[in-house]
């Protein structure tokens, strides 16, 4: 199998950013929880960085980012498992959102996951799925406030497996 090229679809500035940001990352110990049950008995939740929110929910703050382009909204939103795809909005100014607006499953495959549940390939799709908005030059607030709350909800819903889906 050929090695996936991380830079294949990136423009020159983004590719340069990614290389620089990789160089800045320290070596660290990688946390690890072994899978406790087979996938077909596991509860699966998903977390997308696309800036997804329910149509009736608070949008991610794009005006704030337009005022200060160095800033990104560090909050998170819940997307319930049975949400109709048309009820989800995409708030992300850095990635082409058209495909996700056309079909949410390109980014947060709620329907596909329910199909795997129905087919018995996973235990179940968790009651809640989540989104943050990934353009955060300083992720401190997201990491200190949003992620712990997401983890609490996942644990309350007895999630076993989390599929993280960077946008």
């Amino acid at each position: 199998m050929n090695k996936i090229d991380s830079y294949r679809f990136l423009g020159p500035v983004t590719a340069k950013l990614v290389r620089r940001w990789i160089d800045r990352e320290p070596l660290r110990e990688i946390p690890w929880t072994p899978l406790r049950k087979p996938l077909n008995e596991s509860t699966v939740s998903m977390l997308s960085t696309a800036g997804l929110a329910l149509a009736g929910d608070r949008p991610f703050d794009q005006d704030g980012e337009r005022r200060d382009p160095w800033w990104g909204d560090p909050s998170f939103r819940v997307i319930p498992r049975d949400t109709a795809e048309d009820d989800v909005r995409v708030y992300h100014l850095h990635v082409d959102t058209r495909h996700t607006e056309q079909d949410l499953n390109c980014t947060l495959p709620l329907t596909r996951l329910r199909e795997l549940e129905l087919a018995g390939e996973i235990g179940r799709s968790a009651p809640s799925h989540f989104s943050i908005m990934g353009y955060l030059l300083d992720p401190t607030e997201m990491l200190e406030r949003s992620i712990p709350e997401i983890i609490l909800r996942m644990r309350a819903e007895q999630v076993d497996v989390v599929l993280l889906a960077p946008f």
Binding site: T33, L163, L164
Partner: peptide, 14 residues
Amino acid sequence: MEQAGLSTVTLSPI
């Protein structure tokens, strides 16, 4: 998340 007992996988285009 792993420290909280969740097993994660990241589907990454980068």
